[in-house]
């Protein structure tokens, strides 16, 4: 193993780590605000990537039908518990009119000729709205349930989404075009343009999230909800809105991570789960609470993965997921009071 290989593995590790960092941030965010451990994060990643792949090959992305279906379901749930005509009107707009309009638009466009930026936007426009819809249908009715119930629901949603993914994308995997084909030489090290795109996108997203939480009213509302749900509610912040907004952000992050990762690895309908879980290992390193620790943990996971795939490729997942054990051990040593769990 020479310096060149180390540099190459390091580059791989940091690239993947940046993506895990994004996922870890989203997981920490969702958990802090809604207490949901967001297992389906990986499905947003996979659906984003596969929608992009469909757009690139000029196919009509089947995720649009899922969006329409999700919208109808959300509308139905809204309809059963509607409080006013205005809320139904809004629900109709977002859950029925929007998906159908999007489907019509895509039907009219010749997908194969779109520029990359437009594809990215379309992929986001299709998959991201399913985040808040998912919150509305699966989690909002039980928002006050114990963490463990929310977790089991989360796992159930993940399973259903994997099944749907198989149904609409089939068992074949896809890889998408890198955002940049450029190659840069740095001494003896070749740096791929896509690596830089991934790093830049991650940094931009992280900074944007920071600004959102620090400078905007909605961001502050989410932070308030994360710190004290009841207090925030008494100050007029709707927990339902906070939940939907959080799921929206998580879906954006999920889809963007999917777009970033798809040129590096072939993505299958069920790839999201393992990638998402690695984000989890990172988030757990941060105790599901600290954003910088989670990001640091993500880079660590990425590096560990790339180096272990060099030494013992068959065992790379074993090694990554076993990392969680010393981390948990360290966590359990630092907390020793008997707590009530609910």
């Amino acid at each position: 193993m020479d310096a060149e290989i180390i540099a190459m593995l390091g580059q791989d590790g940091v690239t993947n780590g940046a993506i895990y960092a994004l996922l870890a941030l989203a997981l920490v965010l969702v958990f802090a605000v809604t207490r949901v451990i967001f297992i389906p994060q990986g499905e947003f990643l996979a659906w984003g990537a596969l929608t992009m792949a469909a757009l690139e090959s000029g196919h009509f992305p089947a995720t649009v039908w899922l969006l329409v279906g999700c919208g109808v379901l959300t509308l139905a749930v809204d309809g059963f518990s509607a409080t006013g005509r205005r809320s139904i009107g809004r629900s109709l707009l977002w859950n029925l009119a929007y998906p159908l309009a999007l489907a019509g638009l895509l039907w009219g466009l010749s997908l194969a000729e779109l520029p990359t930026a437009a594809r990215v936007l379309i992929a986001l426009a299709i998959v991201v709205p399913m985040g808040p819809m998912l919150y509305r249908v699966a989690f909002q009715p039980v928002a006050e349930a114990p963490v463990l119930v929310l977790l089991i629901i989360s796992v159930a949603v993940h399973l259903a989404m994997v099944g749907l993914g198989l149904l609409i994308f089939g068992p074949e995997g896809s890889r998408t075009q890198p955002f940049s084909e450029a190659q840069f030489e740095l001494g003896s090290l070749m740096i791929g343009g896509h690596t830089l795109v991934v790093l830049a996108a991650s940094v931009v997203l992280i900074v944007a999230l920071y600004l959102f939480f620090d400078r905007t009213l909605y961001g502050k509302a989410l932070r308030a909800t994360a710190i004290n749900r009841n207090g925030a509610r008494l100050m007029g912040i709707s927990p339902a809105l906070a939940g939907r907004l959080t799921f929206f952000l998580a879906a954006v992050i999920g889809v963007l991570s999917g777009l970033l990762v798809a040129p590096i690895t072939t993505i299958y309908y069920d790839s999201g789960f393992l990638i998402g879980l690695k984000g989890f290992v990172a988030a757990i390193i941060g105790g599901l609470a600290s954003y910088p620790l989670a990001a640091g943990g993500a880079i660590l996971v990425g590096l560990l993965e790339s180096f272990s795939s060099f030494w013992a490729s068959a065992f790379k997942d074993v090694i990554v997921f076993t990392l969680i054990i010393p981390v948990l051990m360290w966590r359990s040593l630092t907390s020793h009071h008997v707590e009530e769990e609910e």
């Binding site: 958990f31 451990i37 114990p146 963490v147 463990l148 977790l151 879980l277 989890f280 290992v281 757990i284 599901l288 997921f321 076993t322 969680i324 054990i325 948990l328 966590r331 769990e341 609910e342």
Partner: peptide, 11 residues
């Protein structure tokens, strides 16, 4: 609470 189920997933 929630670390345990996540841990069980990992192992």
């Amino acid at each position: 609470g929630h670390f345990l189920p996540l841990g069980t997933m990992a192992w």
